[in-house]
């Protein structure tokens, strides 16, 4: 290896580095500076003032939104992981190679459909006089209120996250050593016990990462809580879009955004640490 990088190597490695530094890292770093700026006469001025942090952190509306978002995202991650697991388990352990490949292909399709369109469609399904309530009406049930509440929000989160969570779970389950499962069966370990004590521990890292992704996506999403959850009370991401779009109070939006990033980093590190604990075993 050369000690000095050649022109050739720099031609290929630098553009991406420069682009991501300039347009990814720098804007995120700029948010930190922005959070200390002040707004006078609808004009942002470079400054070093903690007024935005104090203002935002002293509002109970913010903390309500914060804990609400945290709770919704955690609940969503847990619920989606639980709902996904039997499906992932069945795909990984019960289907043939061909069916498995098809299933993975089918689960990738939603990534290329517009999330907005799916949310709009869900509004039609969930509204008071919508498809689901009409259907339940035939069965003599309902109508239930499924829109503009947490049920709507969580349904939206699930639409967003479920395909990804199933895929990630399937990938981690595919890596579980089949001999271990066989051995457990040979030693007369029951089906449920095999799943709980052999399969889940050996796929733990992947399962936790899948849940983490559901958390990250739910925590940052503003479409479901707004258009399916009704937007009131707001989540943190709705706060950011509201503040940003309604005026020049971007420094305050930056405070909310930075708080979100700090929370996400904390959760991500904790989850990864938990996922790889006892990895050697």
């Amino acid at each position: 290896m050369n000690t000095r990088p050649s022109l050739f190597s720099l031609t290929f490695s630098l553009p991406l580095l420069i682009w991501q530094l300039a347009f990814f890292l720098f804007p995120l770093a700029f948010l930190v500076a922005l959070s200390f700026w002040t707004v006078r006469n609808f004009q942002m001025q470079p400054n070093f003032d903690t007024v935005n942090w104090v203002k935002i952190y002293s509002r109970s509306v913010f903390w309500d939104a914060y804990f609400r978002t945290l709770l919704l995202a955690s609940f969503s991650a847990a619920l989606i992981s639980l709902a996904a697991f039997p499906a992932s388990y069945a795909i990984s352990f019960k289907l043939g190679e061909n069916a498995k490949r098809w299933m993975i292909f089918v689960l990738i399709i939603p990534f290329f459909t517009s999330y907005l369109v799916r949310v709009y469609s869900l509004q039609v399904f969930l509204s008071d006089a919508g498809i689901l309530n009409a259907f339940l009406g035939y069965l003599g049930l309902g109508p239930y209120s499924m829109l503009n509440n947490s049920f709507g929000t969580l349904t939206g989160y699930a639409t967003l996250c479920l395909p990804l969570v199933i895929l990630l779970q399937v990938f981690s389950l595919n890596f579980v050593n089949r001999d271990l499962v066989e051995a457990a069966h040979n030693m007369r370990c029951g089906r449920l016990r095999t799943v709980l004590e052999v399969i889940i521990p050996s796929a733990k890292a992947g399962l936790v990462i899948a849940g983490l992704f559901a958390f990250i996506l739910s925590f940052g999403d503003f479409v479901s809580p707004l258009y399916l959850g009704g937007g009131n009370p707001p989540t943190l991401s709705i706060m950011i879009t509201d503040i940003t779009k309604s005026g020049q109070q971007w420094p305050r939006a930056a405070v909310v955004a930075l708080t979100m990033i700090a929370t996400l980093l904390t959760v991500a590190f904790a989850a990864i640490k938990f996922a790889y604990r006892e990895a050697g075993k």
Partner: peptide, 15 residues
């Protein structure tokens, strides 16, 4: 992995 609202705000502020 960065939530899109945060990317959006950061990009808007910077750009």
């Amino acid at each position: 992995t960065i939530p899109v609202v945060i990317m959006g705000l950061a990009m808007l502020a910077f750009l």
